[in-house]
Amino acid sequence: MTIRSRRETITFKHPFHIRGLERELPAGAYEVVTDEEMIEGLSFASYRRVATMITVPSEGVRGATEMLSIGSVDLADAQRIDASAAND
């Protein structure tokens, strides 16, 4: 099984919530890591997402970060809400 990781930086312009996380996160840039595994047996390379994680400021420890597992749909929802708030 072949796994690849994709990293991207996502910026939120407003404080936001992601379902599954109990706290509000501040506006700012966040690193998101998506792990994908290759689907074997095909005549072309194809991958499926197996994990999505976001690096957030740690609670209680100033300057520390933690990587939390989140749902890709939940992340997309948070981005959509942030973008629509910018239009208000």
Rank of each mutant, 00 (worst) to 15 (best):
M1N: 15
T2P: 15
R4V: 14
S5A: 13
S5N: 14
R6V: 09
E8T: 08
E8W: 04
I10F: 04
I10D: 05
T11P: 01
T11R: 10
T11Y: 02
T11K: 10
T11M: 04
T11C: 05
F12R: 01
H14G: 01
P15Y: 03
P15D: 05
H17A: 10
I18D: 02
R19K: 15
G20C: 03
G20N: 02
E22S: 14
E22L: 12
E22D: 15
E24Y: 05
L25V: 02
L25F: 03
L25P: 02
P26K: 02
P26E: 03
P26A: 00
A27D: 06
A27G: 01
A27Y: 03
G28D: 01
G28S: 04
G28Q: 00
A29P: 02
A29F: 03
Y30Q: 00
Y30K: 00
E31H: 05
E31D: 13
V33K: 11
T34M: 07
D35G: 04
E36D: 09
E36H: 05
E37R: 12
E37I: 07
M38V: 09
M38C: 08
I39P: 02
E40C: 07
E40V: 11
G41P: 05
G41C: 04
L42Q: 12
L42N: 11
L42R: 12
S43I: 08
F44A: 08
F44I: 07
F44N: 07
F44W: 13
F44D: 11
A45L: 13
S46M: 14
S46L: 10
Y47I: 04
R48Y: 07
R48K: 15
R48C: 08
R48T: 13
R49A: 07
R49W: 06
V50P: 00
V50A: 01
V50D: 02
V50L: 01
A51C: 04
A51Q: 06
A51S: 12
A51D: 11
T52Y: 04
M53S: 14
M53N: 13
I54F: 01
V56H: 00
V56I: 12
S58E: 13
S58N: 11
E59Y: 06
V61E: 13
R62E: 11
R62M: 09
R62I: 07
R62F: 09
R62K: 10
G63L: 06
A64G: 08
E66N: 00
M67K: 15
L68P: 03
L68M: 09
S69Y: 14
S69T: 15
S69F: 12
G71K: 04
G71F: 03
S72A: 15
V73T: 10
V73R: 14
V73I: 10
V73E: 14
D74H: 06
L75S: 03
A76S: 09
A76I: 05
D77M: 11
D77N: 10
A78W: 00
Q79C: 08
Q79L: 11
Q79M: 14
Q79A: 06
Q79I: 08
R80Y: 12
I81F: 11
I81D: 15
D82S: 07
D82A: 07
A86D: 08
N87I: 08
D88E: 09
D88G: 08
